[in-house]
């Protein structure tokens, strides 16, 4: 199976093409950033970009990712500088156990690409597919607002 992940070509053998892209990323490509919490599209912790669209990697068959372009949370930061969205999550204290964070980062990244200054209802709607058991959503909302401000100031 061949695809591009975070800008780099990936080629893996012995893939069962019906396994999920999430499994392929984590177990076969050594990219454990996307998390596996439910495997049924409910929690969003596996959110990745597939050809530029945020999707649940657990619901994409590995074979469907053939020749596609995948971006995971590992692909958001520059060389050694966090992406403003990542920095904002840290600064706002929106990360506790961190399990939900990779998915939230990708979903927030996408939201701010489409809508640089989202309203609170727009934030809630955009993150409705990402569950967090720890922090509570207030800190996450704070983080998204801070990220929007930081990006605007860039």
């Amino acid at each position: 199976m061949k695809c591009t992940v975070n800008g780099r070509p990936q080629e893996i053998d012995d893939v069962w093409e019906g396994e999920s892209l999430l499994y392929a990323l984590r177990e076969r490509m050594g990219l454990p950033g996307s998390k596996n919490a439910c495997e049924q599209g409910e929690c969003g912790s596996c959110t990745v970009y597939l050809d530029g669209t945020p999707v649940c990697a657990c619901l994409v068959a590995a074979g469907q990712a053939q020749d596609r372009d995948v971006v995971t949370v590992e692909g958001l930061a520059d060389e050694d500088e966090l992406h403003p969205v990542q920095q904002a999550f840290l600064d706002a204290g929106a990360v506790q156990c961190g399990f939900c964070t990779p998915g939230l980062l990708v979903a927030t990244h996408d939201l701010l690409e489409r809508q640089p200054q989202p309203s609170d209802p727009e934030i809630r709607e955009a993150l409705a597919g990402n569950l967090c058991r720890c922090t509570g959503y207030e800190k996450i909302l704070d983080a998204v607002r801070q990220a929007a401000t930081a990006k605007a100031e860039q």
């Binding site: 019906g18 999920s20 495997e39 049924q40 619901l59 068959a61 074979g63």
Partner: peptide
């Protein structure tokens, strides 16, 4: 057939189905 996979993959992930052939329409 598999399109968005949002039903099919849930079944596969939970071993509710193991199709011999998957037909990707995407």
């Amino acid at each position: 057939p598999i399109a968005g996979g949002t039903d099919v993959m849930v079944e596969i992930n939970f071993d509710a189905t193991r199709p011999d052939v998957l037909l990707d329409l995407t």
